[in-house]
Design a protein around this nucleic acid. Structure first.
Lengths: 402, 402
DNA sequence: TGTATTTGTTGTCTGTGCCAACATAAACCC
DNA sequence: GGGTTTATGTTGGCACAGACAACAAATACA
């Protein structure tokens, strides 16, 4: 990818580019287009990239030779002129995604076209040790790969952790769900599997997925917030780039403080968004005991008791404060809400919007939208796969498979 | 600038690159190095960019032909081998910076090497109208340019506004200091001056300057906070890029809410950092009436009355909460404090650091530093000039002067 | 003074993307 | 239904940016 304009601001550290980089960048750009669109015509690629027809022909040819994309006659009729061939992303290149939970770990094979070809859930002890998860992953991958058709290629493994991850060395700083502290899980797993492993935070990956394939499509500046049983996570995309921070801990949006309340969140911080807006409170007030997401959502939207309605309104107010903070800091185009934050928004979108606007600066509050997310239960698999495919897309010619 | 790796995350919008872009990008990279370092040897450029010696020779030659840099024998002795020629940024290319205040506007000519060659302050009526500022700028530029030596070239005008600026169209959304609302000042001035005009927020520009030439050098992820009489402004640099948001309103860090306090800030928002930590309160408690920055600073650092000490501590606590929020959101490497926030930090750095750490998540709080800024009174001129030079640096061959 | 080391210079070469001309395949038009 | 229009794929030649190798130049060091 070649980025012109806006030179880097800090200490200069840009390297020069040679002819190889040029070719590599163009291949990457093309492959990214095909990946993001699953299938796209050659003429659209020409228009989008601004490259010459003959160049596109050459580059696509190379991607076909690399077995990364395939060309097919386009059945798209109705337009004057010679029909343009469709370029479709490979359906035989996979990322393995790993999502460890309290007492089970889910392993999936996700193709570049987004389909989950195979998925298994391996039970583990409660709060499994890193080794126990490694065992589960090893078994899971064997099972998952057995179901893939012959000739399938795997780029590596993406581990989606609900906790703080140092993305520079793929190690888990803290994961309360698994009770892990400073676990170099990436290295552990890499040694076992002899293939590349990437580890990242669930909120960041979900944000990335939603940005590329979900409700964030077409927006360059996005705030993503997810409310789950474990708390509130999130992610930020600025100028089409995921904000990771210096080590990858950025986007801990649940832990921003908004009030003096002494209620604490999952990390013991007081007055934070997560401390004020939590799932258990809501479920309890609505008379539910450990409900499924859908049940909680329905309950929130059809709440009738004054106490429940008051509580919901209170949560909406708190969420509004947090959103205002984020709007003031980022001036985003859109805020995406998922998990139980989604029904909160739907229960009284006017209230949430006005609370947010009340506490945001003039310019930023004016055009920001709040939306619900589009990707459902597969979001972590899609986000994890995207992480695993990143290197391949950045340098298609040098891709290695396992 | 060619950026490899990490493909854009959102809707794809990258264009392809051809050989011209390659050349342009390399010229830009080189010029940026020279600009950021003022002077740098050719061999250092070779090492930094990874380009071939002969290529550097060719590219630097082009920059010399364009009169953007000059080469000189290097007196740097002591090293084995043929001495490498020094490349120095031009001292005859200028940006005009404009900083409008309550009742005067300062116009400066800033060279690419950072020196302020000429500066005038033109008095205006209190709360001047856009036209009145235009008049002042027109007169000021004439005066400033008269002092420049023959052969000087000007790239354009950068207006530094203490308020919210829509950078897409260079218009001022709100500036309370000037009492402006929705003023398309960039267009107005451009029409008058017949040269390019850029407008941006003071906090963002100061952050950029500090990042490139001040205490932020060498860091890629920076939070900048400035405390002045008008309130608290700021800026954010992520991955060496200034965070501007979708319209340029990002970085309103003074308006993030941290408590339930009902005290209001300059925009009427309650419980925000700016509402809690303000200059007038401090000056008053220290028995000062509209003090200069230096006097206030000294007073803060030598406060003795219990009331003053208590107030300072209270401000430090509030600042700590705000910093924790920013750390949780951005995971920065360094936080830069300036204005009256600087003596607050120096008065009790331990207190500020621990308050921040207490409220930040584990990973992010561990390696973050708090520092004071390095650029003094010239910071807005340097930042403004950097804005004005951006286009020139991004495409040196196509530069136009006025 | 000679050698090692580093950097600048020059001419040649490779390969990437552009371009123009032609081929191809659809819609459109009478 | 054949000619025209429009858009896209294909091909061969071309321009030019950057790499490379060989040589020259200028320093430190023994």
């Amino acid at each position: 990818m070649v980025k012109l304009n806006s030179p880097s601001v800090g200490g200069v550290q840009t390297r020069g580019a040679n002819r190889d980089d040029l070719r590599q960048g163009n291949l990457a750009t093309l492959l990214e287009y095909v990946y993001k669109n699953t299938t796209i015509s050659r003429s659209d690629l020409t228009a989008a990239t601004g490259l010459n027809r003959s160049t596109i022909s050459d580059l696509v040819g190379e991607l076909v030779d690399l077995n990364l994309v395939s060309e097919s006659e386009s059945p798209q009729a109705g337009r004057v002129g010679r029909p343009s061939a469709n370029v479709t992303i490979s359906d035989s290149i996979f990322a393995i995604t790993v999502v460890p939970r309290h007492h089970s770990t889910t392993i999936s094979a996700v193709a570049m076209n987004g389909t989950v070809a195979s998925r298994v859930r391996i039970a583990t002890p409660i709060h499994p040790s890193p080794e126990e998860v490694c065992d589960a992953v090893e078994r899971g991958i064997a099972q998952v790969r057995a179901e893939l058709k012959r000739g399938s290629r795997v780029v590596g493994v993406a581990v989606v952790v609900s906790g703080q991850v140092d993305v520079r060395n793929n190690s888990v700083r803290i994961c309360s769900m698994l009770k892990w502290v400073d676990v170099p899980f990436g290295s552990l797993l890499e040694e076992r599997l002899k293939m590349p492993v990437w580890v990242d935070n669930d909120g960041s990956l979900a944000c990335m997925a939603e940005s590329s394939f979900g409700a964030g499509r077409g927006f360059s500046d996005i705030i993503y917030l997810f409310g789950g049983a474990g708390g509130i996570g999130g992610g930020v995309v600025i100028d089409n780039q995921l904000v990771r921070g210096s080590r990858g801990y950025a986007g801990e949006l649940g832990h921003i403080r908004i009030t003096d309340s002494r209620s604490v969140d999952s990390l013991g911080l007081t007055g934070t968004l997560e401390a004020l807006v939590n799932r258990d409170d809501l479920a309890h007030a609505l008379g539910l005991d450990d409900p499924e997401d859908d049940d909680l959502s329905r309950a929130i939207l059809s709440a009738t008791t004054p106490r429940a309605i008051r509580l919901i309104e209170k949560k909406i107010q708190a969420l509004g404060f947090a959103l205002a903070n984020l709007v003031n800091i980022f001036n985003p185009q859109v805020i995406l809400l998922s998990g139980f934050l989604q029904p909160l928004f739907q229960a009284n979108d006017y209230s949430l919007l006005s609370k947010m606007r009340q506490n945001a600066v003039a310019g930023s509050r004016e055009h920001v939208q709040i939306r619900t997310t589009e990707l459902g239960g597969r979001i972590l698999e899609i986000g994890g796969a995207q992480l695993a495919f990143t290197d391949l897309i950045a340098d298609p010619a040098r891709a290695r498979f396992f």
